[in-house]
């Protein structure tokens, strides 16, 4: 029973901390000139691809193989870029 709980919690923790694609709804992202920092910061983190959609306030990340990026790290990166997080959606 304990083993089953352990396996299940590992599966769920993987779904939280590692994913191929992540959509982030960002607060304050109204200007592409100012949003440059977001792309740069995520690229420095090793993210494979970063797409910014100003109309939908969305930053879409495609993680590199085996890359892990947790919500706390995502929020820190966006804070360093000067923005706030509304929602993080792992795909």
């Amino acid at each position: 029973m304990n083993k089953m709980v352990l396996v299940l919690s590992l599966i769920f923790s993987q779904s939280i901390f590692a994913a191929g694609k992540i959509d982030i709804t960002v607060k304050g992202m109204v200007c592409s000139f100012c949003s440059q920092g977001i792309t740069k910061k995520f690229k420095e983190e090793g993210v494979k691809d970063v797409k910014v959609d100003l109309t939908n306030h969305l930053v879409s990340l495609e993680l590199a193989d085996n890359q892990k990026l947790d919500n706390a790290r995502i929020e820190t990166i966006l804070k360093d870029s000067g923005y706030g997080v509304e929602k993080i959606e792992i795909k």
Partner: peptide, 13 residues
């Protein structure tokens, strides 16, 4: 075509 002239930008810039 938009912009802002902020005296503080993103960290490390």
């Amino acid at each position: 075509p938009k912009l802002m002239a902020h005296p503080v930008a993103f960290a490390g810039s």
